[in-house]
Amino acid sequence: MNPEVAQAALAAPHADVTLLTMFWSAHIVVKLVMLGLFSASVWCWAIIVDKIFLYMRARRQMDNFEQVFWSGQSLEDLYRTLSNRTNHGMPALFVAAMREWKRSHEGGRPAIGSLQQRIDKVMDVTIGREVERFQSNLLVLATIGSSSPFIGLFGTVWGIMTAFQGIAASKNTSLAVVAPGIAEALFATAIGLVAAIPAVIAYNKLSSDAGSLGARLETFADEFSAILSRQIDERQAA
């Protein structure tokens, strides 16, 4: 009956619901949630990319080293080439063990008595350090993967709360009034899921990779320890 009213009702709902306008029209809390989740997603992907490259490099390094190690090359030569540069993974393990061996044979009287234990200890420490390097930041992925859906949900609940407050204020229940608020609120959950899903998948994949790399280091350490132990016993017998 009153065309002005009808026109106003028609004009009120903006069909403009792009993601950007949705973000800018959101409540400050929802905005913070969205920004937090977005940065979490950035961080999470940074970790994923880093880890993937790290594991690729570590695997390649191990392959190369094992090839060289089992090629029958003199361990002394190998140590000499490796000892004057920083190493990671298997070379680091090898260098640490060889350094302890060398140090025990320095001076007039070699300390061979508990050399085996010392070498094992040194290699354990190195393995621990390497595995820690492999697994660092994986917990961040786990945390993002488990918590960002909840954070997004919080943003959604807050946004819907705001939307309903808007309804109460405008005293108009038409869907066009409610829809933008709810859409923007759901956007928060969407970002949360976007951040969480890759995080969870990558965490599972990367942690299993880190575990297999660590196991490979353990295996090498045991084999090397066996070789050194044989040498020590031969020298003691001699």
């Binding site: 993601l19 950035v42 961080w43 992907w45 994923i48 990319v49 880093d50 880890k51 490259f53």
Partner: peptide, 21 residues
């Protein structure tokens, strides 16, 4: 080298640009 962060930022930038434009 830690390629992760720049890669991730670039990836997200591309994604946002794709969504917006």
């Amino acid at each position: 080298i830690r390629p992760g962060l720049p890669t991730s930022v670039g990836l997200h930038a591309v994604l946002m640009a794709a969504i917006l434009f």
